[in-house]
Design a protein around this nucleic acid. Sequence first.
DNA 1: GGGCTTTACTGGAATCGTTCCAGAAAGTGT
DNA 2: ACACTTTCTGGAACGATTCCAGTAAAGCCC
Lengths: 152, 152
Amino acid sequence: MTTARTDDAMLRERGLRVTGTRLAVLRALDEHQHATADDVVQAVRADLGSVSVQAVYDCLHALTSAGLLRRMEPAGHAARYERRTGDNHHHVVCRSCGAVADVDCTVGHAPCLTPSASHGFAVDLAEVTFWGLCPACAADPVPAARTSGTTL
Amino acid sequence: MTTARTDDAMLRERGLRVTGTRLAVLRALDEHQHATADDVVQAVRADLGSVSVQAVYDCLHALTSAGLLRRMEPAGHAARYERRTGDNHHHVVCRSCGAVADVDCTVGHAPCLTPSASHGFAVDLAEVTFWGLCPACAADPVPAARTSGTTL
DNA sequence: GGGCTTTACTGGAATCGTTCCAGAAAGTGT
DNA sequence: ACACTTTCTGGAACGATTCCAGTAAAGCCC
C-alpha cells in the first residue's frame, strides 16, 4: 500500500489531525470503493479492533468536507463514499441490489451539464446517475425498486 | 382546474381505482409541484379533512408505479413528487433549503447520457441533478450541506 | 517530554422519513 | 344489490443518521 504515508500527508495538508480511525477509514475506502457507512464500520473494526459508529460518521464527514472523500446517495439506498474526487465521473446504480460503479464522462469536461434555465439558482455542480441492473441482478430475477427520470 | 375529469380518466386508464384520496393527491401536486410526502399530506388534509400518512404514501406509490407521478429524492432531503413525467427534464436542487426547480434538457434528447463504459450494467435511465443555491438562500446566508459531484 | 488547548472518540438516546401490519371501509364488475 | 378486491386507518417498527455530554487522545509551545 503506497497510500499509508500519503494519507498522513493529505490529512495534515488539509489541517486535519492524523488519527488511527481516519487512516483506517481511508484504507477501508481504498479497498472497498463505494462502501456504505456500515461497510466502513465493519472494515475499520476488522482493522483496528473496535470503533463506534459515530466515530466513523465523524470521520466520513470530516474527510468529505475536506475534499478527500466524495459522498453519493442513490435514492432509496444508504449513502456511499469513494476516494475518487475532483474528476468528472458519474455513477451507474443497480436498481435491485444498489451496487454502484463508476462511469467516466464520455465527452471531455462537463458536457451537457450546463442547465439551460437555472431559475436564478447559483449552480455549482452537476451530478449524473444512471439507473439499471448490474450483471448479477440482470441474470437472476429479483424484485426491483421504482424511481423515475429520463428514459433513454 | 381542467384536470379533475382528466385525472379520473387517467386513473381508470391505468387500471387504478378512482378514490377521493388519489384525486386529492393529484390535485395537491398540481398546486405544489415538487411537494414532499408531508406537503401532500398537509394539502390533502386541507382538502378532504383528514387522511392517514400511509394512505398518502400508498397513493404516491401507486401513482408513481402507474407512471402518473415521478419521484425524485435529492441526497439529504425527503423525496419529492411531481406530475411531469415522460419528458427529458432534470432538476436543480438548493443545497441549503432543498428547494427543487425543473430544468429542461438543453440538447435535444438524452445528450451525454449514454455512459461510455457501463460495466455490464443494463442501463435504462439517466438522471441529472444540478446542485447550487436558490435565489433566496444565495441572498441570505444559511449553513449549507455537503455533497459532492462534478464541479462545473 | 510535560502541560495545555483543541479536536476526536465513546455510548446511548433521539430524530426523520418511510414501511409493515391487521383490521375496517369503500370502490367495482356482474 | 352482492361478493370480491383494493384501499384506508392507526399504531408500531425500521434503518440510516444525528445529537448530546463526557472522556481520551493529538498537536503545539516551551
